[in-house]
Design a protein around this nucleic acid. Sequence first.
DNA 1: TTTTATCATCGTAATATTGCAATATTACAT
DNA 2: ATGTAATATTGCAATATTACGATGATAAAA
Lengths: 107, 107
Amino acid sequence: MGASKVDIYSAEINDMATIAKVFAHPARVAILQYISKQEGCICNDIVDEIGLSQPTISQHLKVINEAGLLKGNFVGKSICYCLNINRFQEFQELFNSFFNKTKSNCC
Amino acid sequence: MGASKVDIYSAEINDMATIAKVFAHPARVAILQYISKQEGCICNDIVDEIGLSQPTISQHLKVINEAGLLKGNFVGKSICYCLNINRFQEFQELFNSFFNKTKSNCC
DNA sequence: TTTTATCATCGTAATATTGCAATATTACAT
DNA sequence: ATGTAATATTGCAATATTACGATGATAAAA
């Protein structure tokens, strides 16, 4: 196989897994941290900062973006990637809600 | 490829990704939720509850266990799985620390 | 217009993950 | 000891992910 049986779980559970997947690769964690550290949201030195090729970084950015975590502003020929904090906060709340719900009625 | 270049990231970043991977599959999220819901930590009807085969569930349990999230008590020939709340709480704190750090100094 | 820089996409190789059938192991009961 | 129920392990097929080189697309600069 290799494909998850998505249809047998509730939407809530699938959402949780989908969101977690974004953070389930160190490159994406590193990208998110790096972007957030930049004042004024500087562009693609991400490739230089992290040790991966430009296409690979671009691919990871796509995953992060599809999760709604990016805002991209064009500045000349570069793109300024910026964290979508609202969405990020949403994720944090979802995680906490999952954690709290799961541990609360535990044995 | 298919293999992550783990050696180019800090331990903190790799830890974050490793932990997230546990929650990055709906079966594992479902298993955790189910286990936590049971009063007194009941045994392996997880297979019936979720719609996957016994070997598959066993495999997912192994992943969860290797992350330190399970306590297993033998009760006759069955095993009572129980959430390791301390570890679970640890994970929650790690996530929150990552979220807070990342969003705090953002553009 | 041509060049140059930045980023996305395509194609592809290597590896990982998911899921299950078959089998092994474990632990109790008889 | 033998049988049986519960769980783990193995082996394999299908699919997903990761990474990169090559190629495109776009927009400023020359």
